[in-house]
């Protein structure tokens, strides 16, 4: 069998590129436009990463700006502002992961326990909704609800808690806002995983006398494990990145100590202060570490035999 396929492929190779271009020209015509978009808008900017190693001057451009090697990176790693942004990024993202990651899993398990059709549908509809709201709208609503003296939450409790204007409170609100926004939407993938579990396993567990919790623990969760691992790898890969739209619109001057993350730092240094090379270098650092995190967690998952991304 193997030899045959090998022969076939070598026969195909011999036909040459022109044969395929001629036979499948329609396919190449179809892929050409999206590929052009990918090349122009995603690959071409990669050339711009060279700015990180240049004393970039917009008038001189890429080719004439002097090459300065890694000195920009040296400047960054001794900059207090950058180190604070790095710390905030990691701390906020770790808490995001700890609070946000298990929620959809728990919620999906609870949702499958609901047998009443219309109730399940209604609650799912409501739970998914926040995912479709922009961070501007969420922040707008949050500032209205949680304002210290006029916000309805403080009015109801008779307090003046500065939920969004004191950094520790703000950090909690920042984490909770994402839990609120994405807990429902995150269940979709896990619900699909649960649907894919073989029903015989539940029956066998019932015969063995397993109750509801035993079934969840010994059948549902193991069945969800591959999906959980993939989602975890993807989440770990995002540890270095932040959702700019979220952190930018939720932050304000009184919480800058905690709310300045790499994404906002890149924007401020780059487009507000026009320090292109520093901003690019920070962005490059972020992308590279993010990529390493994805590849590393993928490797670890495969080594543990839990499946991986590809």
């Amino acid at each position: 069998m193997k030899i045959q396929t090998k022969k076939e492929t070598s026969a195909k190779r011999k036909l040459g590129v022109m044969f395929y271009l001629k036979r499948d020209w329609q396919l190449y015509a179809l892929i050409a436009i999206p590929l052009l978009f990918i090349i122009v808008f995603k690959l071409l900017p990669l050339l711009g990463l060279s700015i990180a190693f240049l004393d970039y001057n917009p008038i001189l451009g890429f080719s004439d700006s002097p090459f300065i090697g890694f000195s920009v990176f040296k400047e960054i790693f001794t900059s207090r502002e950058f180190l604070i942004a790095l710390r905030n990024t990691l701390v906020l993202n770790v808490f995001d992961l700890i609070c946000g990651f298990p929620m959809p899993i728990i919620l999906a398990i609870l949702l499958t326990e609901i047998t009443c059709g219309w109730y399940k549908k209604l609650t799912q509809t409501l739970l998914y909704l926040p995912h479709f709201l922009s961070w501007v709208i969420i922040a707008g609503i949050a500032y209205q609800l949680f304002a210290p003296s006029t916000g309805i939450i403080n009015v109801m409790m008779g307090t003046h808690i500065p939920f969004l204007t004191e950094k520790w409170h703000w950090a909690v609100m920042y984490i909770l806002s994402a839990v609120w926004q994405s807990m429902g939407w995150g269940t979709i993938i896990y619900l699909a995983a649960i649907t894919g579990i073989n029903g015989d396993l539940y029956e066998a567990a019932s015969i063995d006398g397993a109750g509801r919790w035993k079934k969840i623990w010994h059948v549902t969760l193991p069945g969800m494990k591959p999906t959980i691992v993939v989602m975890l790898i993807m989440a770990l890969g995002r540890l270095m990145g932040s959702n700019f739209e979220r952190v930018n619109v939720l932050s304000n001057t009184s919480v800058k100590d905690f709310s300045e993350v790499i994404a906002t730092y890149v924007y401020r240094v780059g487009l507000e202060s026009n320090r292109f090379n520093i901003s690019t270098a920070v962005g490059l650092f972020q992308s590279v570490v993010g990529l390493i995190l994805v590849l590393a967690s993928d490797k670890v998952a495969k080594a543990l035999d839990e499946g991986g991304l590809v």
Binding site: V40, L43, G48, L271, T280, L291
Partner: peptide
Amino acid sequence: INTIFIITMYFGAGLIPDYLLLDTL
């Protein structure tokens, strides 16, 4: 081609290179 597409999911150039590209275009 598939790999090229996947790469863009995990590695982006960042704000300034994107900005300069649009500026150039």
